[in-house]
Computed example of a mutant assay.
Amino acid sequence: MTLTGANRHDITQLLPLLDAVPPIRGRRGRPRHRPGTLYGDRGYDSNPHRRRLRERGIRPRIARRGVAHGSGLGKVRWVIERGFAWLHAFKRLRTRYERRADIHLGFLQLACALICHRELMKSF
């Protein structure tokens, strides 16, 4: 998770965020460091970024600008939108009151921990 100013484009943080992904555990052998596929909306449509993703072994599934809707990304994008809705349930995150980024990041991490705790409690 990264925190930037409101006037920064999301695409500027795409590659640094992918580089910060920790090893993914699960199967035996060498742990994966990168996802196999990246889904994105039209805001991430950029040929240089698509090329850099392919160089890293990541298949880009990004909707193209100027193409009619119906790319099929809604089947997987609702998970992210649901996560944003859960974060916006915390009013302090929906409207940023803190001037200092470290305090806002702390509240964001606390909200993520509370959301994970709530979802884990549903499974028991």
Rank of each mutant, 00 (worst) to 15 (best):
H33L: 06
L3M: 08
G5E: 11
W86V: 07
F84K: 07
K91N: 12
I58H: 00
M1Y: 05
R118T: 14
I62R: 01
G74H: 14
R34V: 00
L14G: 01
A101P: 14
R59M: 05
I24Q: 05
A68I: 14
L110E: 05
N7K: 11
Q13W: 06
N47H: 04
R99C: 09
P22W: 08
G70F: 06
R94E: 10
R118Q: 15
Q13P: 05
A20H: 12
L105H: 08
D102T: 12
R25H: 03
M1W: 04
R42A: 07
M1I: 04
R32H: 02
R92W: 10
R92F: 07
G72T: 14
P31K: 02
G106Q: 11
T95P: 03
C116H: 13
L87V: 11
R94D: 13
A20Q: 11
R51K: 08
V79T: 12
R77L: 14
W78H: 13
R52D: 04
I115L: 15
I24D: 01
R77D: 08
F107H: 08
D10E: 12
Y39M: 12
I115M: 09
K75D: 13
H49G: 00
D19G: 02
H104Q: 11
G43W: 00
Y97C: 06
P16L: 09
I115V: 10
H69C: 11
R99L: 12
R56K: 06
R99F: 09
V67Y: 07
I115Q: 08
R118F: 12
P48K: 01
R25G: 03
G106P: 04
S46Y: 02
D10A: 03
N47C: 03
L87A: 05
L73C: 15
P23Q: 04
R96D: 05
G26P: 02
L38A: 02
H88L: 08
P60K: 02
H117T: 14
R99W: 13
H69M: 15
R32G: 00
T95V: 13
R30D: 05
G66Y: 02
L17T: 12
G5N: 15
W86Q: 11
N7S: 15
T37C: 05
H69N: 12
P48Q: 01
Y44F: 13
P35V: 03
G40Y: 02
R61H: 09
L53K: 00
R28A: 06
R118S: 11
R82G: 09
G43K: 00
H69I: 10
R28C: 02
N7G: 09
R42C: 07
